[in-house]
Amino acid sequence: MSAGAWAALALSLRLAAVTTLVLFLMGTPLAWWLARTRSRFKGGVAAVVALPLVLPPTVIGFYLLLLMGPHGPVGWLTQRLGWGLLPFSFSGLVVGSVIFSLPFLVQPLQNAFEALGDRPLEAAATLRAGPWDRFFTVAVPLARPGFLTAGVLSFAHTMGEFGVVLMIGGNVPGKTRVASVQLYEFVEAMEYGEAHRLALVLVLFSFAVLVLLNFFGQGKR
């Protein structure tokens, strides 16, 4: 594989890792809230979280581009804060990926938290554990398979995204040219040999991820 392909692959991995990390930090409280709330806003929030599942990625990319661009509110804010503009930067890709992969993290986690039921947390409360203590010492360990599924799915889904990346990241080598975009480049340039190798690597990666997920899933039962 050429140096360009390797760089694109490395960028994809870095993007997936950062995205998954950010998703865990943001998505875990959201999943917890969705699993436990009786708020009337629950349905609406759950729908927004699930939106990336059904929307064409280009639609998300298009709106993000507008929001984060020089005339969008987010763009205005980032400029005021001295961060510059997010589109066509790695940070912009992370923002897009986080939104695009949100349901892949939130839904498995929400399911895992819901499956816990109230009882273990009530038992922990009667054993002097406060709310944070209960969350970290009871909910998280009991929901471990959910965390694993959520992490793997978010990572793999970020690796595979194309539309959002192309819309807000463009195609800047070493900065926003991720593996899927690089593959598109190769095909455009009719470098089929390179395309074959990169595509094969991606297929093997995805396959390995699913096998791994299955393996851990079995181990828990």
């Binding site: 009882r119 273990p120 009530e122 038992a123 922990a124 409360a125 009667t126 054993l127 002097r128 554990a129 406060g130 203590d133 009871v138 009991l142």
Partner: peptide
């Protein structure tokens, strides 16, 4: 968690 109680539920509810 601030009440000086011990509770035993119908099902043991062990972790």
């Amino acid at each position: 968690h601030r009440r000086a109680i011990g509770v035993v539920f119908q099902e043991a509810s062990l972790f």
